[in-house]
Design a protein around this nucleic acid. Sequence first.
DNA 1: GCGATAAGAATGGCATACCAAAAATTCTCA
DNA 2: TGAGAATTTTTGGTATGCCATTCTTATCGC
Lengths: 238, 238
Amino acid sequence: MATTMDEAAMDPREGLVEKVANYLREHIVMDHFQPGQRLPERKLAEELDVSRTPMREAFKILAAEGLVVISPRRGAVVADVSPQDVQEKAYVLSVLEQSAAELCCANATDDDIAELQALHFEMKAAFLRRDRQNYFRLNQAIHNRIVALSGNNSLIEIHATLSRQLYRVRYLSNLKNEKWSVAMEEHEAIMAALEARDPTQVGNELRNHLGKTWMKYANPAAEDQPLADVDTDTESGQ
Amino acid sequence: MATTMDEAAMDPREGLVEKVANYLREHIVMDHFQPGQRLPERKLAEELDVSRTPMREAFKILAAEGLVVISPRRGAVVADVSPQDVQEKAYVLSVLEQSAAELCCANATDDDIAELQALHFEMKAAFLRRDRQNYFRLNQAIHNRIVALSGNNSLIEIHATLSRQLYRVRYLSNLKNEKWSVAMEEHEAIMAALEARDPTQVGNELRNHLGKTWMKYANPAAEDQPLADVDTDTESGQ
DNA sequence: GCGATAAGAATGGCATACCAAAAATTCTCA
DNA sequence: TGAGAATTTTTGGTATGCCATTCTTATCGC
């Protein structure tokens, strides 16, 4: 475990804290730590061969990002996202992606749109093969790409942070989602509107897409089935 | 200076780090530290009578909130918000407030709307008296209230964080803004749509309002005139 | 006198030590 | 045997120390 820390980007300019934070972020997002699980700073620091100081500072960063919760005198635990949280965060996410799509229509080059469509068809291929892993990965990639094409760095950053908070839930939902084909159709519509560069249409389709996908999530959270070791790139363009 | 640390909320359950972070946040937002200014951890720690450890951890939190920037081996400096940053962040803010307004129309009680209108008339009074301090304070209070009435905690939190990043710029702009009356008229329109509980209308008015107020901010940043000691409550309902 | 450079001071990064609170364990007594 | 109290152990919070890098400044050479 300790030997895998350098998985994270190894920019020599960044300090230990960033490496530790990246490592923890990765493992929390990929669900290698269960929500609610305690993160004992001594033990983790020992495993990563660092002292407690950078570990604690990394906790503070992750807490500000909403991935862990620090309780006084009880330390850090992996943030547990309640069904209500999911709804609220997903709503904000849909709003952000809607506006990103609008900006995307104005800013993206024809090549950008073409690349999006390429990803879309790759995703469709995964869909037809019932390949949920790659379907999920490509789906994420498309959404992230649209946001990236907005050109608004603040929007991109906030979206990425929020997106990470929901990654696990989204992944679990992808595994059990029955209405796969509906989501696929919605994506078709999104791509069509994108090709036509109709900002309002793209925005509405996207918001509706996310809304439909997540509003139903008002029911009790999915069981705590651990995520498989997927080789997805967590964030594409950041 | 050191004696003023307990200005910030003194919840005995929260540790030193939170107190330090609150203290620094307050002073950065209120522009007692200039953008770009270095924040030497030893000196500040000494002034606040704490060790360097909580100071450093507080820096990490504020960095994650976008209020300071930490460069390797150079430490923390107060984040400088470039004109482009202002535009981008203000755009996201307008999107968030637009959707907050929509939710607000659905969730707010009649009393909530009445209270908003009361604030609006207070603000109008400040406008007529050319009382920029209170005009600004009440303006902020109204916007924050609308967001709070959305009932979406994620939205509220993200809006608050982003809002703090722009507080200084917004305050400076308020002091020099010539088109005061235009903004006032827009607020009238917002309130009218809110009273009619027309989500689309409120949303559009609000987004247009913020858009108009900030899009012009593409020109060079305002000069670094320090903020006066205003007794504004930074955030109202959080 | 001015610029480059080297020595010294300041500063940040990380590790460690110490303390207090909390959790776990064990011991005691009913 | 079981519940509760006391003790031990673990764990988090804060302070401090050491080292490496950077910034300052003063000196040396041109």
